[in-house]
Design a protein around this nucleic acid. Structure first.
Lengths: 125, 125
DNA sequence: TGATTTAATAGTAATAGTTACTAATAGCGA
DNA sequence: TCGCTATTAGTAACTATTACTATTAAATCA
């Protein structure tokens, strides 16, 4: 594992993003800082950073993966109209996890919660 | 909207499956019953059946979409070791949804909950 | 019943997102 | 500074899915 300027750039870009960007979006933002960075490098480093636990991968139904600077347990909401992806603080998720663990006997290492619907801004229109 | 033998076959195959199959797997199973069915037809009918609310689409982090005959609100668990996808009855999901709706003002139309970990069979090994 | 209409089909091409490959580059320890 | 090797840029390949097109067949109607 080596410290490269490319890896730092990918991490900085994700940490500066509040919109749960896709790999392609992260690539575009990286190129603004480091124009020679390649898409493959972005994908590889995203994977490395997820493995290191520095960022988190978020799966959105019917779309490519997104990335999140917040690694702690929380839920996501995707608006069907505007496509925005927002964090949803849900402090009862840990209780939910624990309940499933004790009921099923499974070992749970990660939980993905995605609500799909219409956000308040779009509802107001 | 026409009633075709192909659509019936796709629906029957999903309803007969307990393993949350992928589109490709559904295609293979359909061909055992109807050898001339094409992959595009399977994809198109899966989409139609999801829109009709007869089956459900399940997103698994880091893999293609899966399909589920059970449309009611429930969670899923994916084992990192054997790759199996199982239903997790979670009756507190509705409470979770309602809580988020009232806290955020969002309209929630669907909720996806995925636990990732190690299933009891794999833990025993 | 048979003709007509048009949604759905099979088969194939195209696309999007992601991963693999390869020669060149650049961190980092000796 | 040298040498080793992980990482890189650039490109090719791959996987999952969608789009396209000529053909077929389900439902409607004469």
């Amino acid at each position: 594992m080596r410290n490269t300027a490319q890896r730092d750039t990918v991490l900085k870009v994700v940490e500066a993003s509040c919109d749960h960007p896709s790999a392609e979006t992260i690539y575009t933002r990286c190129r603004e800082i480091m124009p020679e960075i390649s898409l493959g490098t972005v994908y590889r480093n995203l994977k490395v950073l997820v493995e290191l636990g520095k960022i988190r991968e978020v799966s959105i139904l019917n779309a490519g993966d997104r990335y999140d600077k917040t690694v702690g347990l929380h839920a996501h909401f995707r608006c069907k109209r505007c496509g925005c992806v927002l964090d949803v603080p849900a402090n009862d998720l840990e209780t939910l996890e624990k309940g499933v663990e004790s009921k099923t006997g499974f070992q749970i290492d990660g939980t993905e919660v995605l609500f799909v619907g219409v956000c308040d801004k779009c509802r107001a229109i």
